[in-house]
Each structure stands twice: as C-alpha cells, then as structure tokens.
Amino acid sequence: MKKPVSLTQEYIKGLWEINPIFKQILGMCPTLAVTVSAINGLAMGLATTFVLVFSSVIISSIRKIVPSQVRIATYILIISTFVTIVDLVMKAKFPELSKALGPFIPLIVVNCIILGRAEAFASRNNVLRSFLDALGNGSGFLIALLVLGSIREMLGTRTIFGVQVLPNQFTPWMVMILPAGAFITLGLLLGFANAFTKWQEQKNKKSVLVR
C-alpha cells in the first residue's frame, strides 16, 4: 500500500518530479514543432493545460460508470470535444495565433500526455486529486514549452515575446528557429535536466550519510 500523497504534492510533482517533457519525455511532437517563439510555446502550453484539466476532471468523475472495455473510446471522445472547443475559440478570438500553431491544436487529441494522465491517474483517483494532477502536469508542460520557446526566440530573432532583449550587434542564429534548433535546444535542456537530477541524488545520498 502506497503512502497517501499530500494534495500540494499532487500538484507540485508535475512541475519537476514527473515533468511531462523533462522526465516522462512525452508530447515531443508539439514541443519540437511549435516552440519557435515564446508566445507560441505559451499558447500551446495553455491550450494543452486547458484540455488536460477539463478532460481529467470529467474522466475522473465518470470513472465508476465507464465500462473498462470502452474506456479508451470514451476518453478520446471527451478529449477531442475539449480540443475542438479550444480550436474553435482560438480561430474565433485569436486568429493570428491559431494560424501560427496550425494543425498542432487539433493534434492535441493525440498528445500522449493527456491520454497518459487519463489512463494512469484520472481513471483511478478522485476528482480533486485528478484536477491537481492535471494542473500540475499541464503547468510542467507549459513551463518547458515556454523555456524552449524563449531560448529559441531569443537566439533566433533577438526577442522574447516580441520585445528585443539582445543588442543589435548580436547576429541572430537562424538555426534556432529551424527544426534543427528545436532538436539541439531540447537535447541540451534534457541533458542539463538529467545532470541536475544526478547532482540532486548525490546530494541527498550525502545528507543521509551525514545523518
């Protein structure tokens, strides 16, 4: 029997401990494709978080009535409903952003993070915990995309959120807003994340020994 996890921990763990990008390595396709700018990363992160939170809550609340044979079908139906809502709202209210993100908004349907959380968490836990878990994972995804988008936009066009942060003397690295830049940046970030985790573990080990 597992120890009960505190409610705060249910949210916090998504930010780093089981961060969808840095730890679970899920949802790589939108991560690599849309993060040419900070605003794109933010919008994609928000859209995914919205879908994740609402579908997790609904799935969790009906988890006892849905027969296990058709659970995946039901989940996908619920997820795609929210994705379509996001898509329509963005097209109606933020046409520029919707154009920039292109097919990646409808593709949230097949984002493994969402079905992953539905299967692994929401279908087994109560509504409050599912809500916090989804919010945590969504925030983790959003932070990762925002970091990736900001780095790429800064080096590729000198700006972050359209505001110039690097001097004119800096020649933009075009590669950063090309697909190659996405792979290089993400690879380096994952490397640093792993190095940090290792360093943390070693520190913990040492402190245990001292005790």
Binding site: T171, W173, M174, V175, M176, L178
Partner: peptide, 10 residues
C-alpha cells in the same frame, strides 16, 4: 553545418 544553418547569409 551549424554555422551554415545559423548564419545562412554570412
């Protein structure tokens, strides 16, 4: 290759 992609004009 990195320079080619980063600074295509230069």
């Amino acid at each position: 290759a990195f320079l080619q992609a980063a600074f295509p004009v230069e």
